[in-house]
Design a protein around this nucleic acid. Sequence first.
DNA 1: TATTGTTATACTCTATAACTATA
DNA 2: TATAGTTATAGAGTATAACAATA
Lengths: 175, 175
Amino acid sequence: MSRPTTRTAGEVVPDPAPADRFRHSELGGDIPFLLARARASTSGAANVALEAVGLKVRAFSVLWLACEGLQPSQRELSEFLNLDPSQIVALVDELEGRGAVTRQADPRDRRQRIITPTAAGRRLFRKAHALAEAADDRSLSMLTADERRTLGELLVRVALPAPDGPPGRLSGPGG
Amino acid sequence: MSRPTTRTAGEVVPDPAPADRFRHSELGGDIPFLLARARASTSGAANVALEAVGLKVRAFSVLWLACEGLQPSQRELSEFLNLDPSQIVALVDELEGRGAVTRQADPRDRRQRIITPTAAGRRLFRKAHALAEAADDRSLSMLTADERRTLGELLVRVALPAPDGPPGRLSGPGG
DNA sequence: TATTGTTATACTCTATAACTATA
DNA sequence: TATAGTTATAGAGTATAACAATA
């Protein structure tokens, strides 16, 4: 076979060059479809890169937010990372088990657990971040720096709509 | 709670307005992260819209490609939709069971099964396509038509790289 | 010998519900 | 009464391996 599909731990890294007749199909211009493929290839590549430090993108994202000094609670992580609260529990358990983060009761509301990185967690994050960044550069190598910035700006508007913008009809009574 | 999270059949439609301190985090500018969130919200909204015709985005995509007259084989569907061949079997079984498509052995290579829509399948697709398009319009309502076009063009480059572009280092020896 | 589709199976990811402790 | 986190469990999604038919 001329174009092998590389299989990884948990995810398929898609064949990079589908047949032309499909590339130019109408579906091939559909934004949700393109988002799904782009997500699969970028997250897949990042997962492969992060294997070197025993992380996957989900745990890495939790560690990332903890390392930004935002003192996130698990509930906040759940909302921002779009993961169920019970998944956050498992992810934090994993990171805590590795000595990368600790849970600390928020003094102002002791129900909330603030996730704080340890020194080892910060070192792990720096290493993981470098690996992920290199993987991103490869995944997005077909874009110029300007195009990549534009893509980021447009995606932010779609993925993280402003709190007070137009009513943002993503969820609601029709939901 | 002031901002309820709407839960749907199979997927969470994310809270549209995360706290500002997270929106402006470094993670909040990471393209794979944004792709993951954008995919979740657009596919989630499309899934909700397609419930009205008893489809989900994956089966809908198979039907879409079949209805474009491309005579896709299951192998081709698998590659383009980035789904395992065994998943395509299940999806085609479902559509065939509903009378929306048929499998026909390719006369030139009888191992391959070409997926062809029935008349009912075409009617189903038209209805589903209208529903999905309306959902997309809502999901992307924060972009102008120009911005949406730009987003599509950039995503195509990332998600469907040209067969003969730069070596496209998505898979390879470093995999 | 290799490939397409198929089946069976296992694994990962995600969602649901019930519980606790705090508020 | 309501919310954060936890646990157990179930369900959807995805991957792996073995097989039949065809090349």
